[in-house]
């Protein structure tokens, strides 16, 4: 198990290195620069800015310079927000985005697994069709449509919940979490249904029935562990996707999370900010995928065996 973990960790180093390099050159290759603005700055000012941020140096020098700082954990200064470093901004935004993603994935797991199980227990009945058509709707509905709809119904018509903000008034975290989580709930419901249906048709479920176990025990003890393995495999990429995709929800609900900084940085050509957030997110994606693989091994003892063999 440890060898498997270390092996995966070593494999991820080149992946992250490639991400850093590709991002570094791609953002510089894109047209425009960090100091383009509606009000054109005088050439002298731009020259001095370029000098200050080392942008007048040759590309390869900038690259190695950046790598050197990065190795010391320094993401560099933001090109847009003077006097603020990228590290500071990530510190401010990441916990909020993380909290949002955790709530969203919890909502997605609870609703998704429950709906998928209901559907799998009685396939091709109302108990299957209703949650599954809802799930289909959930997958099709983009968050920029669902978010405003929820705001309209619960925030404006019913006035049950605040329409925006994060931690300013009680209950303002509910709507963003639901908006972000619903698509994933739908995916998880479909994965759970598929996984459970496959497991429930296995011979060992018949064995469990022949032992005289009640249906609930059979499902919880014998079917769930195997039935959820597709969900577990999906979980790593899903959380990573939640983090990266949170900017729409953060924009709708005016949440000062990392996602908003990320999008703004792209618009602003804030090179260091783009690089910093991209590196952070790619590390998270690699890490979460690894965790979901580990979880899969823990759930399925046969995988541990094949890993030991390799």
């Amino acid at each position: 198990m440890l060898r498997f973990f270390v092996g995966r960790l070593l494999q991820s180093i080149p992946v992250i290195f490639i991400v850093i390099t590709a991002t570094f050159f791609l953002v510089r290759a894109a047209p425009g620069g960090p100091f383009d603005a509606e009000k054109t700055l005088s050439p002298e000012v731009i020259e001095r800015l370029n000098e200050r941020y080392n942008l007048d140096a040759p590309m390869y020098e900038q690259y190695f310079d950046y790598l050197g700082h990065l190795a010391q954990g320094d993401f560099g200064p933001s090109f847009r927000y003077t006097n603020r470093t990228v590290t500071e901004m990530i510190y401010a935004g990441l916990p909020i985005t993380f909290e949002l993603a955790i709530y969203a994935i919890m909502i997605a797991l609870v609703i998704g697994i429950f709906a998928g199980m209901l559907a799998a227990i009685k396939p091709n009945s109302a108990q299957d069709y209703i949650p599954m058509s809802l799930a289909m709707t959930g997958i099709c509905m983009p968050s920029f449509l669902l978010g405003p709809l929820l705001v309209l119904v619960f925030g404006i018509w019913l006035q049950w919940l605040p329409v925006s903000g994060w931690g300013y008034s009680p209950g303002d975290k509910i709507l963003p979490a639901i908006t972000l989580g619903s698509t994933y709930a739908a995916y998880i419901a479909r994965l759970t249904r598929g996984g459970m249906l496959e497991i429930l048709s296995q011979d060992y479920i018949r064995t469990a029935k022949a032992k005289g176990l009640p249906m609930a025990t059979i499902i919880i003890r014998h079917a769930l562990r195997g039935g959820l393995s597709p969900v577990v495999a999906f979980l790593g990429p899903a959380i990573a996707g939640l983090l990266a995709g949170s900017f729409v929800v953060e924009t709708i609900f005016q949440i000062p999370g990392l996602g908003r900084f990320y999008v703004q940085a792209a618009f602003n050509r804030d090179y260091t900010m783009i690089l910093g957030t991209t590196i952070l997110l790619s590390c998270l994606i690699v890490l979460l995928n690894m965790l979901s693989d580990l979880l899969a091994v823990w759930l399925n003892p046969r995988l541990a065996l094949s890993n030991e063999k390799n």
Partner: peptide, 25 residues
């Protein structure tokens, strides 16, 4: 009633021991 008979008073052995045991347990 059936649950009290299944596995207690009448037991079964199935054909394929590769698939009739739960691999996760």
């Amino acid at each position: 009633t059936m649950r009290q008979i299944r596995g207690k008073r009448i037991s079964m052995i199935f054909q394929d021991p590769m698939t009739s045991l739960n691999p996760y347990m």
